[in-house]
Design a protein around this nucleic acid. Structure first.
Lengths: 123, 123
DNA sequence: CCTTGACTTAGAGCGCGCTCTAAGTCCTAT
DNA sequence: ATAGGACTTAGAGCGCGCTCTAAGTCAAGG
């Protein structure tokens, strides 16, 4: 039997706001969520998994329109597996590049930190 | 003798646009840049170094208003060294947290990538 | 003299990703 | 019956960080 959640429960579980959940649906990141008798959204586990994964994409800097593209591929069935893979691999590369760049920037920041520590006679 | 650069040269060297350079100055991230006889900005090496460091702070996600705070401390002389250190250390912590979170998210993305590769009979 | 081009300013505009508001519907409890 | 509360929609609003525009000044070259 399928457990289903209201939008506020789904928000709670996903860490997004109810506003954002509706926005993502409107924006084409989610397929239309099924409704109960009174027109209220009911989120099933599959929805939540999708939301959680898309959130990871967002959290790693993928722009909404690219997440939408991925979502469209998810809706498109198994013929889209190649393109999904390509999209994720491309994203992976850009995340790695960002991590790398950030690590470098962090080094400079830490260099400055050490400099201030010395200046203040700490350490 | 001090080499000095026009705003477009400074933009070139710093990787920012001339618009952004003026914006950063207006926004209090830079001290007023000195001017030549006709009112044009002349950037000296010290300006460029500051711009480059502030860019690293930006590139690692520090919000403008926090960069401004740091800039104010830079203008405030040596009594501000403690606070500068504290600010940078706090930023360092948040960058590390972001790196960590991003690495975790990346793992999930890579897990999906592997899954698609298998599904497609690659590897 | 006059054009060209790099600069100046104040302020408007923009893309992104939410976030919120207003007005309305529906169910439940009193 | 009515009040409360969770939901619905369309659409407006917002914070951020630029990015661009319009109108003007100035110096150099033809």
């Amino acid at each position: 039997m399928g457990v289903s959640l209201s939008i506020s429960e789904a928000a709670e579980k996903s860490g997004l706001s109810v506003h954002t959940l509706r926005y993502y649906e409107r924006a084409g990141l989610l397929e239309p969520i099924s409704r109960n008798g009174s027109g209220h959204r009911r989120y099933v586990e599959e929805d939540l998994e999708r939301i959680r994964f898309l959130s990871r994409l967002r959290a790693t800097g993928m722009p909404i329109r690219r997440v939408r593209r991925y979502a469209e591929l998810l809706n498109g069935g198994d013929e889209t597996n190649e393109e999904r893979l390509a999209l994720l691999e491309e994203h992976r590369a850009s995340v790695l590049a960002l991590l790398d760049q950030t690590a470098q920037n962090l080094e400079l920041i830490e260099f400055k930190i050490d400099l201030y520590r010395e200046r203040l006679g700490r350490k």
